[in-house]
Design a protein around this nucleic acid. Structure first.
Lengths: 157, 157
DNA sequence: ATTGAAAGAGTCTCAGT
DNA sequence: ACTGAGACTCTTTCAAT
């Protein structure tokens, strides 16, 4: 992480392409980017060694599994020094899939995924609110996710 | 349509495992779950047909690519009927990777990924604020991401 | 660093259960 | 529905450039 990475256009194109679809074969991706499959292989191995690439993950449609509710919760702390302790307690709640320490309105900001509103209510009132050091919370419930996409790391022109 | 799929424990275990790491072979995953590799293959094909599985994606450490800044922006609309038009304008901003229509404090909520604060400032002031129909915005900048993980779809016991 | 080809490993299909 | 084996495809290594 302390080393400066020197990534060229080919590296970025590979990343851009495989962030969207990691199933493409090295040979096919090589064809598309005008190099051999062997070169794709070497580059990906390098990116893994450098820690840029962290593996591949199955993309799952959570709604079709019955996880219909996404909520965001802004958290106000009693004292900002309680961050570590509160973060640790929050991590014990499996429905919380993400926690950020933030500037701005809130001290902390979490994302929650649940099967229904009943379960969300349970997480908010029985779990989150009981954590020592949390002053109060504000909840945003997502009625619709308009889009979600990857950052653009390679822009052709 | 998102109901009523009949998925059993095996399906959920496959999903749970491959959400974390999609590189495992069918044979190895089968061993772990006490079935043959062929069965894993059939199940995954079924999950793809049902639309539960949407492919695989490369997991990338954005920070090592120089994308150091994550920000969340809450948006107040002049009228909530402007949602569609504003959503469309927001989608044109490549740094915005996610947009949700929400209840609660804000009408809309976006996530932004940038290389630095300069770029974030540009996105906020030259792009977002110029969109017709946006009343005002509140920005949360992430100072640290404490954790990020997948939802739990299978809990052993 | 990239290539092409051979060796090794994984996916996919199918007949049998 | 699951299994195991054969056919096929992809990954990985490596000598040559």
């Amino acid at each position: 992480m302390s080393h400066k990475l020197n990534l060229d256009h080919l590296d970025l194109q590979i990343i851009q392409s495989m962030m969207e679809n990691a199933e493409i074969s090295y040979a096919d991706l090589g064809k598309r980017l005008s190099v051999s499959g062997g070169t794709i292989h070497v580059r990906i191995k390098k990116l893994q060694e450098f820690g840029v690439v962290k593996g591949t993950r199955l993309a799952v449609d959570m709604r079709s599994l019955g996880y219909d509710v996404i909520a965001f919760v802004g958290i106000y702390l009693e004292k900002s020094s309680l961050y570590e302790s509160v973060a640790n307690d929050i991590k014990q709640i499996p429905e919380v899939i993400r926690l950020n320490y933030t500037t701005g309105n809130y001290s902390m900001f979490v994302e929650i995924v649940c099967k229904d509103i009943i379960q969300l209510k349970h997480v908010l009132h029985e779990q989150l609110q009981n954590i020592k050091g949390i002053d109060r919370t504000e909840t945003l419930i997502s009625l619709e996710e308009s889009f979600r996409r990857n950052p653009i790391v390679y822009r052709p022109n």
